[in-house]
Simulated assay, not measured.
Amino acid sequence: MKLQVALDVATLGDALSLAYQTKDYVDVLELGTPLIKAEGLSAITAIKAAHPDKLVFADMKTADAGELEADLAFSAGADLVTVMGAADDDTVRGAVAAGKKHGKDVVADMITIVEGRVDRIREVSKMGVSFVEIHAGLDEQAKPGYTIETLLEDGRQAGVPFSIAGGVTAETIAAVQDAEATVAVAGGAIRSAKDPAAAAKALKSQIR
């Protein structure tokens, strides 16, 4: 299982700093959607240039014009790009077409989908995405009763390659691996730590 750090910051400087601090312990560097909106596609190029040995994940959250937006992100240096799992099927297929053109991977982000998520995961998987990200956003995580176990159970039921984003911590990462996730995505557990490098190292050490 790979470890992905979500660079959920608003400036390229902060993103480069966080990436540098965690580079020895993570496999994937994710540019969060706010960062891409604030800094533009050049942020993807800058992160890839600074860390050519890492997979760079552009969280575009594309909801329309899938092929165009994915092509832009791949051309900027992304290795993986997200398309919304809730988007029109042709949007997903368009993003996948761009991925094939560049020889890169498209990930279907399942954020906002709660009801019927397992069925939709299976549907988009058949459209050619490399894997799905079973993702609970910050607003969903803030709701009473939220638990990462809901995401893990959907992954187990779906039976296709998946990542988990939303509550991955030192206390939950073992369960994420036990559910056979392809990637564990850690955001606040690393970004908000007093020592992000130590936090990333602690998470990585638990991956068998």
Rank of each mutant, 00 (worst) to 15 (best):
A97R: 15
A97K: 14
A98Q: 05
A98E: 05
A98R: 06
K100S: 09
K100E: 13
K101V: 09
H102P: 03
H102F: 13
G103M: 07
K104E: 04
K104A: 12
D105V: 02
D105T: 06
V106H: 10
V107R: 01
A108Q: 01
A108Y: 02
M110Y: 09
M110N: 11
I111C: 11
T112W: 13
T112S: 13
I113W: 00
I113M: 01
I113K: 00
I113Y: 00
V114W: 07
E115M: 13
E115H: 10
E115S: 14
G116N: 02
R117K: 15
V118R: 02
V118E: 00
D119G: 12
D119A: 15
R120M: 12
R120C: 13
R122L: 07
R122K: 11
V124R: 09
V124G: 06
S125R: 08
K126Y: 01
K126D: 08
K126H: 05
K126E: 10
K126W: 00
V129R: 04
V129W: 01
S130I: 10
S130H: 14
V132L: 02
V132D: 01
E133Q: 15
E133M: 11
I134C: 01
H135R: 06
H135D: 11
H135E: 06
H135Y: 05
A136P: 08
A136Q: 08
G137D: 12
G137P: 13
G137W: 10
L138M: 12
L138V: 14
D139P: 00
E140V: 12
Q141I: 06
Q141K: 13
Q141M: 15
K143N: 05
P144I: 02
P144Y: 01
Y146A: 08
T147C: 10
I148K: 12
I148W: 11
I148N: 08
E149N: 09
E149M: 05
E149Y: 03
T150N: 14
T150I: 14
L152T: 06
R156Y: 00
Q157A: 15
A158H: 01
A158L: 03
G159E: 12
V160L: 11
P161V: 00
P161R: 01
P161S: 05
